[in-house]
């Protein structure tokens, strides 16, 4: 167990360092932006106000509220304290809602949409890829070009096509939102049904993209493994084919798990844009609104949350990987 503990601590250390670094980037980058966001928001609030001292008072009040008049390091300290309390300040574009409030409303939609979709896509993709490598012939010939095409299709493009085909033309599913616009979120049967119906299109458009990429990766991994010496040796020994396939699948799977950890960031990025197409009430749509409203506290908090989500998913996968990979188990036995 000592070996595993070392592995775990090593990963945890990396997780912490990356987090600090991401946090710094997140704080600094949006604040380098030219222009004064407070001036922009005040200009909108003060439209039609002819009293210039009034505008000035509003401006100062906002500067005070958001703390943009203090030096950068002081802002950082304040930011750090507030984030630790879960307080991301006020949203510029949706004032007087707080950023935490806006994010709380959208975060769960994104988590509930993306993680199941990525996992389902990964499972189906790997199975198909392994089958293609094992069966070869017609199945491979059809699946591979299709996978290459699908995995190169931009995620938002898949979303648009799904929407046009199944939403606008066939009218099987609603075209936008996370639930019916006439409903209020509650635990009623009607609401849950509406959520499930609205869930289908964003879900499957993400799944299909994931399937393509994973199938290609798994296929080449499995082909490498099928040509490996241990497979030939096992065949000479007369071990049953199904058992060999089991070994091959397992060995080919390991790099695919690391692959998932490394590509989860890209996948989430693509899925966020797909959310926008469906106006799904998740982080992607929130981010779009924040960008349009020049709302830097909201942008900075959303990107921070997305980074933390991705980092965390990564961490979990690495920890699980430690359990599955025999090489790490071998270290544990020492």
């Amino acid at each position: 167990m000592k070996g595993y503990l070392r592995y775990f601590l090593n990963k945890l250390g990396w997780f912490a360092i990356t987090f600090v670094f991401a946090f710094l980037l997140n704080f600094i980058l949006p604040r380098l932006m030219p222009g004064d966001p407070v001036a922009a928001i005040v200009a909108r609030f003060a439209q039609g106000m002819s009293n210039s001292t009034g505008v000035q008072a509003i401006y100062e009040q906002y500067v005070e509220l958001f703390g943009t008049n203090k030096p950068m390091w002081e802002q950082f300290v304040i930011y750090l304290q507030n984030v630790a309390k879960g307080d991301f300040g006020f949203s510029f574009s949706q004032y007087p809602r707080t950023v935490a409030d806006v994010l709380k409303a959208s975060l769960w939609w994104t988590i509930a949409l993306q993680f199941p979709a990525i996992i389902v896509g990964w499972l189906i993709g790997n199975t198909l890829g392994a089958l293609a490598a094992y069966l070869k012939g017609g199945f491979d010939k059809v699946l591979m070009p299709l996978s290459i095409f699908v995995s190169n299709f931009p995620p938002f493009g898949m979303a648009v096509i799904f929407m046009v085909v199944f939403g606008v033309n066939l009218k099987w599913f609603p075209t936008s939102g996370g639930y019916g616009f006439d409903l209020i979120p509650s635990f009623s049967w009607q609401f849950i049904q509406s959520v499930i119906i609205h869930y289908q299109m964003p879900f499957w458009s993400i799944v299909i993209i994931a399937i393509g990429g994973q199938a290609i990766g798994m296929r080449s991994m499995a082909i490498y493994e099928l040509n490996a010496d241990y497979v030939k040796y096992s065949r000479f020994m007369g071990i049953k084919d199904s058992k060999i396939v089991g070994y091959v699948f397992r060995n080919a799977m390991l790099p695919q798990i690391t692959g998932l950890a490394l590509s989860i960031g890209t996948m989430v990025g693509g899925a966020l844009v797909a959310e926008i197409v469906f106006s799904y009430p998740g982080l992607g749509t929130t981010l779009l609104r924040a960008v349009l409203g020049q709302d830097y506290p909201l942008i900075s908090a959303s990107t921070l949350i997305i980074t933390v989500m991705v980092l965390f998913a990564n961490f979990i996968i690495e920890i699980l990987y430690g359990f599955i990979d025999p090489r790490i188990k071998a270290v544990q036995a020492d």
């Binding site: 990356t18 991401a22 980037l25 980058l29 932006m33 890209t266 693509g270 990564n314």
Partner: peptide, 14 residues
Amino acid sequence: VIPTFVLLILISFS
């Protein structure tokens, strides 16, 4: 590990 897309958003916004 830091998602590229997030970096892109932050930088282009900045």
